[in-house]
Simulated scan of single mutants.
Amino acid sequence: MQVQGKYNARIFLAEQMTRAQGLRLKRLSEEAYQPAQYARDLSFTEAARRIQVLEAEIELANSF
């Protein structure tokens, strides 16, 4: 990410989804039969939101 010609690695890394999030999101998206929910270029916040939604959907499906 470039901001006014400057590169700030901390901001860039803070915005990217972590490896752990990526692995969890991939597993959950496969378990929920929603592979489109996984993408390699998600932000940390978007990945966290998708993980939360998929966990809730899986928990709801398992309650039946």
Rank of each mutant, 00 (worst) to 15 (best):
A9T: 09
Q34H: 09
Q21P: 04
A32M: 01
Q37K: 05
Q2K: 14
S63N: 11
L54P: 03
D41H: 10
I51Y: 02
L23R: 12
I11T: 08
E30C: 11
R40T: 09
Y7F: 10
K6G: 07
Q37M: 13
Y33R: 11
A36Y: 09
K6V: 11
R10A: 12
E31Q: 09
R27A: 12
L60N: 12
N8Y: 15
Y7R: 12
R24P: 00
A9C: 07
G22D: 00
F64D: 10
E15P: 01
L42I: 05
A56K: 15
F12N: 07
M17F: 03
Q52Y: 11
L28S: 01
M17L: 06
A20S: 14
R10H: 12
K6L: 12
Q2Y: 11
A20V: 12
G5I: 15
A56C: 06
A47H: 07
I51N: 07
L13K: 13
Y38S: 01
K26P: 00
E57Q: 15
S43I: 10
T18N: 10
L13D: 10
P35H: 00
S43K: 15
T18Y: 10
E15I: 08
K26R: 07
R49F: 04
I11G: 08
K26M: 03
V3D: 02
L28E: 04
R50K: 13
A61Y: 02
A39H: 06
A47V: 11
L54H: 02
E59R: 06
E31S: 04
A39I: 00
R10I: 09
I51F: 02
N8E: 12
I58S: 13
G5D: 13
